[in-house]
């Protein structure tokens, strides 16, 4: 059996933030240190860790948004990695349609596919006439629905999802969860970051556990879940 293609590899990766730079000088804060693991094609990888463990920094590293200060972060050539981000670039005075266009472009949608994409967003978001009204007239739930509908349109090679999404009312929440679940079922490469253990057990086959910026354990979900629950 052939080994699935490696898409992302972190090797001894460490990320440093420089904390405020008053006249007294700056102080370094290492959000991640010495993290090593890989993501392969078709992986449904869960990343577990408590608040402040370094999960979001890890996500940015994997998305190619930041560079490691030590070690390396490698993304296979031509592979598109993107974050499932809601309401990217939304401007309150633009209409839902205009914001959907802007956001889809920002999220990497090809210009030639934009019109088709906006029609699907309009249908999925179920905003009715509000789709052509400025976003400042929306409720927060409507903004989230629009944001989620656009985010769902982006189809990268690796999708990174940060925390569980609470999107709109119960019916829409179920619809969005089903849409996300379909990605996992379709054997797409997905990385889910959360501190919600049952969610990872339900959706992921592999998991890594991050604690205080270091990789505490990695392996199949059942083993990691047991170790994480045990503390």
């Amino acid at each position: 059996m052939t080994q699935p293609r490696e898409l992302i590899r972190l090797e001894s990766a460490a990320v440093r933030y420089r904390l405020r730079r008053k006249i007294a000088g700056s102080r370094d804060y290492w959000a991640l240190h010495d993290v090593t693991f890989s993501v392969h094609e078709g992986d449904a990888l869960g990343i577990l860790g408590s608040n402040g463990a370094g999960k979001s920094t890890l996500l940015k590293l994997m998305a190619g948004l930041i560079a490691p200060d030590r070690g390396s972060a490698w993304i296979a050539r031509g592979v598109r990695v993107s974050l499932l981000a809601l309401g990217v670039g939304f401007e309150s005075n633009l209409t839902g349609r205009e914001n959907a266009r802007l956001s889809a472009l920002l999220l990497g949608k090809d210009v030639r596919q934009l019109d088709e994409c906006i029609s699907r967003v309009e249908e999925f978001a179920e905003l009715g006439e509000f789709f052509d009204q400025p976003v400042y007239t929306y409720s927060s739930g409507m903004v989230m629905r629009l944001g989620f509908s656009v985010a769902l349109e982006v189809d990268p090679d690796v999708l990174l999802i940060d925390e569980v999404l609470a999107v709109g009312d119960a019916a829409f929440l179920e619809k969005s969860f089903t849409a996300l679940q379909a990605r996992f079922m379709a054997r797409k490469t997905v990385v889910l970051i959360t501190h919600d253990l049952p969610m990872i057990q339900k959706l992921c086959s592999r998991a890594v556990w991050i604690d205080h910026g270091t990789l505490k354990a990695s392996g199949d979900t059942a083993t990691i879940a047991e170790a994480y629950a045990g503390g």
Partner: peptide, 27 residues
């Protein structure tokens, strides 16, 4: 092809964002 596609996308983003900021300012 990929470089051209990215360039075209960035050009659209620049145009659209400039338009958005002006519309915001007018409003």
């Amino acid at each position: 092809g990929a470089v051209f596609q990215d360039f075209s996308r960035y050009a659209h983003i620049i145009r659209f964002q400039a338009y958005a900021s002006l519309k915001n300012e007018i409003a």
